[in-house]
Nucleic acid binder design. Sequence first.
DNA 1: TATGAATGAGTGTTCATTCAT
DNA 2: CATGAATGAACACTCATTCAT
Lengths: 221, 221, 221, 221
Amino acid sequence: MAQADAARPLRKDAQINRERLLEAARELFAAKGLDVTLNDIAHHAGVGVGTAYRRFANKGEIIDALFEERLQAVEAVAREALDEPDPWLALTSYLRRTLRMQFGDRGLHQIMDDPTLGDERINDVRVRIAPLIVELVERAKTAGAIRDDFAPTDVTFIQSAMAPIMDSTRDVAPDLYERYLTFILDGIRSDRQVSLLPAPALSSAITHSAMTRKRRSRSAT
Amino acid sequence: MAQADAARPLRKDAQINRERLLEAARELFAAKGLDVTLNDIAHHAGVGVGTAYRRFANKGEIIDALFEERLQAVEAVAREALDEPDPWLALTSYLRRTLRMQFGDRGLHQIMDDPTLGDERINDVRVRIAPLIVELVERAKTAGAIRDDFAPTDVTFIQSAMAPIMDSTRDVAPDLYERYLTFILDGIRSDRQVSLLPAPALSSAITHSAMTRKRRSRSAT
Amino acid sequence: MAQADAARPLRKDAQINRERLLEAARELFAAKGLDVTLNDIAHHAGVGVGTAYRRFANKGEIIDALFEERLQAVEAVAREALDEPDPWLALTSYLRRTLRMQFGDRGLHQIMDDPTLGDERINDVRVRIAPLIVELVERAKTAGAIRDDFAPTDVTFIQSAMAPIMDSTRDVAPDLYERYLTFILDGIRSDRQVSLLPAPALSSAITHSAMTRKRRSRSAT
Amino acid sequence: MAQADAARPLRKDAQINRERLLEAARELFAAKGLDVTLNDIAHHAGVGVGTAYRRFANKGEIIDALFEERLQAVEAVAREALDEPDPWLALTSYLRRTLRMQFGDRGLHQIMDDPTLGDERINDVRVRIAPLIVELVERAKTAGAIRDDFAPTDVTFIQSAMAPIMDSTRDVAPDLYERYLTFILDGIRSDRQVSLLPAPALSSAITHSAMTRKRRSRSAT
DNA sequence: TATGAATGAGTGTTCATTCAT
DNA sequence: CATGAATGAACACTCATTCAT
């Protein structure tokens, strides 16, 4: 009764509140992860909790909406990638750009890490994205750019694989995940070239200090 | 089996309960992640909450104990890998075996994904493992088996990258993560060979149904 | 009535609940001491626990609020006593009136007995009361009404000394503590008069039965 | 079945354990108050908790036993006081000596502050002490040393009145309670003399710092 | 319609007491 | 008999969600 899907456009102020809530959620989720309370989100958005519950049935809903929005952006990127004439570049730029989108958003990471999150509407977007990815992959294969046993569904898993890396190195080596993406791409490209790595490996000293820092800040909470 | 060595040996029944608690924790963490309550763990182990708190100072302690035990096993695998004469096999078998260990344990995933979890004892084990990995990687490089820009710290990140894949496909395609490990290994091997993939790609239909199933079982909880 | 002044005024229903909680706390603290649970207080006030925690950050806060309110009343009594022209009457009426206030409130006793309870705000009130007492005592000394070696800080200790007496005789001889206050006042007055005791001594029979009754009602809890 | 009263003497080792437990309880109660756990007491006594429960039905029992023992010592003091030929000295030395006994024992204070603690056996001792106090008071009255309206039951209340004073000043001014005892004694002596006070008043500065210190150490816990 | 007050089940944790070893 | 492991009710406190204003 409350949450209008795409149907029946929301009243303008309601729409504004919805937008504000999503923005607040994005910021807080990005900064502190999915555990922030709905109270915090609502206040960060400048509205009361009640309003949040008028726009979203529950906390999951707001997460879903955010994920949906993000996926819609992913969909857009996929469409743009299809405009790229070079099939290899099309595929890899899709990967690079969507991964960059995930980066810097703690909440989005959690979501991409945990496939149990997300609802039907999310799937709808996924369903729309799937054929675009199929197209990207098929073109690359047809062009002989990638190995033959590579499949479209592999793309998503590659994306999700970067999540833990981003998550644990965001502060100390923001580009590190691209290093591992490169390993993978070098593993699937047909020309067997060895790419220059876009980021140096993390030194064990940094690894250690980064982890210690995290632990500190955590126990402070 | 883990802490009992150093401390004065627990009474037999206490030892049994300790074991039961760890086993219950492992199962529940594996099944539902680290958020399960200590109450659930205790009851799953067939003991009262108080008993859990007699054996472990707090929830973190039980996680640490589990992680320590697991990491000690990882350490053992690393040592065994060093006995393998073929440097490439040594490195890859270490990866394959430890990943297989992670598999099936949701909690272990979370722990390996989140370096803020775990205490000093955990770090001690990490510190012991690090040089073993360095050795594995150096040998492989010296033998010309892997690319020169590969670094020992890459090993851990590769491991963590498999986590979300395992996590989302455990039920429908348990071996799938090996497919992506292979992509990576093909990306770092010097001979530029293209390996046979150990698992077929997931069909998009399966992808969809798997996720839906997960969501169901979750909302049932 | 207490904190609401400074902060933005609470919504009317919130204010009512706040009042109810304080009243419930006062009653239960009075009846059973400071160990009552916040759950009990909330339910006694006819609200849920959550409400109690919305109004007060923690159990200590509610105690502080109560104590502050009480101490403000004590402050008022001290100011009124200073209006009394007869210095002896001023001092003794302050003592009698404040002790009467303490009477019947087990929690207030505990608080006045234990200086470790109470926060900054409490101390602020204490700081405001201190000079008033100094004035009361100095006047009485100047007028030659009390012995010269009496000091302002003695007043508070005399008050606290009555606590255990009140506490143990509240039900059987509510005025008994005034008997001991009189002994003390007779010990500090300069004219060396012997006052008529305001309450007869407790017979040993009553002493015994009173204590037994208390023990009964306690073990029932 | 377990706890032998005065009847059937305990086996020697049992007796020793009982003694040890009481001593441990006395020390811990004195040092930390009545809230210490029975576990701590047992371990401090060098025995297991189970043993403590074999000797005492529950925690209350051990408190009672302690109080009983203490009261027996009080009884002894009363008998000794009766040997004092000067009736005023007899009464006052009884008060001074028993108060000194209370002093330094946090647990004993709590017990004397809270008349709901203590059981039947305690009363038995009280019953034995009562006539001794009656005798002390009657002698003093007959000798014309104290006011006529003073009653034997007043003695106990005077004792209990000192408890909160001792408790709050133990660390900063151990003798302070004697100051207030003197006020009272000056209030009941017939000769209307004004005694030299055995302790100076607490300065308000000390009062404040003492309280602050207490609060500090408390919040540290 | 927007607000934020109210709710209470649920969380980690403690401790008096019981009972198997 | 002594031990200490086991128990679970109880506590202070949090937060997703509902509902009166």
